[in-house]
Amino acid sequence: MTETGPIRMLLAKVGLDGHDRGVKVVARTLRDAGMDVIYSGLHRTPEEVVTAAVQEDVDVLGVSLLSGTQLTVFPRIFALLGQYGAGDMIVVAGGVMPDEDVAAIKAMGVRAVLLQDTPPETIVTTLRRLVAERGAR
């Protein structure tokens, strides 16, 4: 919880990746943890995702990727967030990707990478911690 209400979260699927069972499970988990979860639907562009995140003013933008495009998607997302003046948004990643890519996107500013073997409660506690650390905005 933020001190003022439920955590708001956008769960996004970007590009040609057509598998969303995982992201739906995560959405349901976060709902049951008391969060407001907005799901983007499949096949979104980084522009669409960032516009939605800014309009919805979410605490956390979560991008689920199973397609291996993380090294091109995240630089674009951070550039767009900067253009909107939304640099304070917490960005996390989920899905499946190689270890070296995890290190690379963390270096770009992704605050947590929650891969396919992450227990649901770890996702919840990680998001709560990141929002609490950020403080009021």
């Binding site: 439920p6 349901r28 709902r31 049951d32 008391g34 979860v37």
Partner: peptide, 13 residues
Amino acid sequence: SPYSGGSILGDRI
């Protein structure tokens, strides 16, 4: 949700 207070906001899709 009347139980958790959370929600899935799906209109945007």
